[in-house]
Each structure stands twice: as structure tokens, then as C-alpha cells.
């Protein structure tokens, strides 16, 4: 139901005013997108080349410094970009108090997944 509230149309449109921000999010989403292009293509190409590999071949591949570096770079950029993109999706469709919680949980999940992925990659690369 529509709330009954006496307010001028301009007052309603102005709302809480401009946040005077938004550029940072928009710009970082673009920068991480551009930064993802190369690691993503490298990753896709690696999958094509190594999808049938056994455990030792895969370990040897990931232990090469260039591949370790690219994998860590991919994980950082991927989850950074995902967090920014999913934020927009949540803000677009969730209009209740659940929005704030969804945003917090989503960001936490992205951080946690990036951390687990990076640690796993480094363990394979640097471990015995």
C-alpha cells in the first residue's frame, strides 16, 4: 500500500539528497573489469589445455611462478569485481532492511572466498 504522507513532489524526488559519491564504485568496477580481461583469458586457455591433467601435472603447472602470480591476481580481481557487481544487483532488487544484511554477507563471502583461494594457490605453489 502507498504510504499516506503529505509531501511536495519535489521533496519526494529530492529524498535524502545527493550522496556526492558513486564515482568510486563505478570507476573501480570498470578498472577491475579491464584488469580481469588478461588473467581471465589466461585462465580459460589454461583450462582448455589442462582440463584432463592429473594431480602432479596440475601441481607442476601452478608452481611455475608466472602461473602462481596470475592465479593470485585472478582471484583478487575476480572477487573484487564480483563484490562490486553483486552490490549493484542487490541494490537494484532488494528494497527492504534485508538489503544492508545482504550487502554485508555478500562482501564478507567475497573476501573469505578470495582469501581461501589465494591461500590454497600459495600452499600448492610454496608447499612441499
Amino acid at each position: 500500500m502507498r504510504r499516506f504522507r503529505i509531501q511536495t513532489p519535489l521533496g519526494r524526488a529530492v529524498g535524502l539528497g545527493s550522496a556526492k559519491s558513486g564515482f568510486g564504485h563505478w570507476w573501480t568496477e570498470r578498472i577491475t573489469a579491464a584488469a580481469l580481461v588478461l588473467p581471465a583469458i589466461w585462465f580459460a586457455a589454461s583450462l582448455i589445455a589442462h582440463s584432463g591433467s592429473d594431480y602432479d601435472t596440475f601441481r607442476r603447472w601452478l608452481r611455475e611462478p608466472i602461473n602462481t602470480a596470475l592465479m593470485v591476481l585472478l582471484l583478487v580481481t575476480l572477487f573484487w569485481h564480483a563484490a562490486l557487481g553483486l552490490q549493484v544487483v542487490i541494490e537494484d532488487y532488494v528494497h527492504s532492511v534485508a538489503k544492508i544484511w545482504a550487502l554485508i554477507v555478500m562482501r564478507f563471502a567475497c573476501f573469505a572466498l578470495a582469501a581461501v583461494g589465494i591461500i590454497a594457490a600459495l600452499r600448492i605453489a610454496l608447499g612441499a
Binding site: 545527493s18 550522496a19 564515482f23
Partner: peptide
């Protein structure tokens, strides 16, 4: 630009 720079006012344009 100050008035427009806002996550919703301007940047909801996808």
C-alpha cells in the same frame, strides 16, 4: 555534477 553524483540518481543507469 555534485547534485548528480550519487549511487542512485546517476549511477543506477546501467
Amino acid at each position: 555534477l555534485d547534485l548528480l553524483e550519487d549511487p542512485f540518481r546517476l549511477y543506477r543507469c546501467h
